[in-house]
């Protein structure tokens, strides 16, 4: 098990930030911890990174108690907000990280140059960090976390405060760079979980209120299907679709011959495709699109997101 959390609690004076949570994340799994601001996400991230000490309970990373050097060395951590040595350059910052981790010089230089290139920061490697915009700073924090090539990554609010383009770029970078790593994303933005994670855990007031697979959760709420047609849709196909019990809604695009369906049961999708084909519909594509995660999670979490 990569991350084992057992009854972890943290209080600041009388204010309880985490109220005894239990969570297990297997090695290589991708998990999104989704909750509103103040739910305890940042506290959990800081506890896992060894920056703070729990009031009660325990957590282990690869079997090592959090806070011990063996645990933190295995974990890449991206905080929010992430403070930097503003006067330094990204290259200097990553170089120092490599030195602190004891990475031999040649490997360190090779790795940091590769990280700068992979994360689209190579042209900024020599600029002072204070001149970097929000998106670049988030990707620089990701690069810093990846310098020691950690097995597990904890990312706090990867895209909060970023514009749509920078958010998309950050999510792409996360997906790309967390391949074959354990990933725990802590966020209040459902899209941050939907893109890279296979499991979603909901947290409210320091307590876990939801734990489900992203796709299972979406599947419970039906599926949208975009059907590309190479010609006219026969009336018989249209009639049979309208009569099918799983078809909740049907919309024809007025500009072309394509069709959009909303199915209440995703398992009925193959049957619907078969129905169309058997009715001589000229189907050219059949694209399933799950409903937005935010909508499905919000339903479970009383719309707090």
């Amino acid at each position: 098990m990569a991350i084992e959390i057992d009854g972890l609690a943290k209080a600041y004076g009388r204010q309880r930030a985490l109220d005894g949570i239990d969570l297990e994340i297997p090695t290589g799994a991708t998990c999104g911890l989704l909750g509103p601001q103040g739910a305890g996400k940042t506290t959990l991230a800081r506890l896992l990174a060894g920056l703070e000490v729990p009031t009660a309970g325990s957590a282990r990373i690869d079997g090592h108690p959090i806070g011990e050097p063996q645990a933190t060395a295995r974990l890449g951590y991206i905080p929010h907000p992430a403070g930097f040595d503003e006067g330094r350059t990204p290259r200097q910052m990553l170089r120092l990280a490599g030195r602190l981790h004891g990475i031999p010089t040649s490997r360190r230089e090779r790795r940091l140059e590769r990280l700068l290139i992979d994360l689209g920061l190579e042209h900024l490697g020599g600029h002072a960090i204070e001149h970097l915009d929000g998106g670049h700073r988030r990707r620089l924090a990701l690069a810093h976390a990846l310098v020691p090539d950690p097995d597990h990554l904890v990312v706090d609010e990867p895209t909060r405060g970023l514009g749509p383009a920078a958010s998309r770029r950050m999510r792409e970078a996360l997906i790309e760079k967390t391949r074959e790593r354990t990933l725990l994303v802590l966020t209040s933005i459902p899209d941050d979980v939907e893109a890279p994670c296979e499991r979603v855990v909901g947290i409210e007031d320091g307590t876990i209120v939801l734990d489900a697979g992203v796709h299972e959760l979406a599947a419970d709420h039906g599926v949208a299907i975009a059907i590309g047609l190479a010609g006219e849709l026969p009336q018989r196909a249209l009639d049979e679709l309208r009569e099918h019990e799983a078809v909740a809604a049907l919309r024809r695009d007025p500009t072309d011959a394509d069709l959009e369906l909303w199915l209440t049961d995703p398992d009925e999708a193959p049957a619907v495709l078969r129905l169309l084909v058997e009715a001589d519909a000229p189907v050219a594509s059949f694209d399933r699109q799950p409903p937005p995660l935010g909508a499905t999670v919000a339903e479970h979490m009383e719309g707090q997101l």
Partner: peptide
Amino acid sequence: ADARAGRIWLSATSGLSR
């Protein structure tokens, strides 16, 4: 001051003890 300024993660995640 790193801790107050939110920069302590830069060194605290390096595998060094507190």
